Amino acid sequence: MPIPTSHTAIATTSLRTLSAITVPTPIPSATEILIHVLWTASTPLDLHQNDSGLLVKYPHILGDGIAGTVVSIGENVQRVEVGDTVFGFSWLKQEGKAHQEFAVVEEWMVGVIPEGFSMQQAVTLPNNFVTVFHTLTADLGFETPWPKPENFVPQNEQDLILVWGGASSVGQYAIQILRYYGYGKIIAVASARHHEILRSYGATYTLDYNDTDIEAQIQTLGEVKFVMDCIGSATGSVLPISKVVKAGAKVAILLPVIVRDSGEDVQPVYGMDVENVDGVSWEEGVEVRGVRTHFYHHNEFFKEHLQPDIMPAMLKEGIVEPNKQKIIEGSTLLERAEKAMGALRRKEARGERLVWRVADE
Score class of each variant (00 low, 15 high):
L125G: 01
F102A: 05
P126R: 12
A122E: 00
M119Q: 14
F102Q: 08
Q100L: 07
D139Y: 15
F129Y: 12
T124C: 05
F117N: 02
N128Q: 13
M119P: 05
H134N: 12
V123Q: 03
V105F: 02
Q100E: 08
M109Y: 03
V105R: 00
A103V: 03
N127C: 14
T137N: 06
T124A: 08
S118E: 11
V130N: 02
E101Q: 15
T135A: 14
F117K: 00
T131V: 13
M109F: 09
M119A: 14
G116Q: 02
E106M: 08
F133W: 11
V112I: 15
W108P: 02
Q121C: 02
F117Y: 15
G111F: 05
L125I: 04
V105S: 03
F117G: 04
W108Y: 10
G141Y: 11
T137D: 05
A122C: 01
E106T: 13
H134K: 11
T137S: 12
E106V: 09
A138M: 08
V110P: 03
M109V: 06
L125N: 00
T135I: 07
E115P: 07
V104A: 10
A122S: 12
Q100T: 04
V104G: 01
V132F: 02
T124N: 07
T135L: 06
P114S: 10
F133T: 04
W108H: 11
F129H: 02
M109G: 05
V132Y: 02
A122F: 00
V112Y: 01
V112M: 02
N127H: 04
V104S: 11
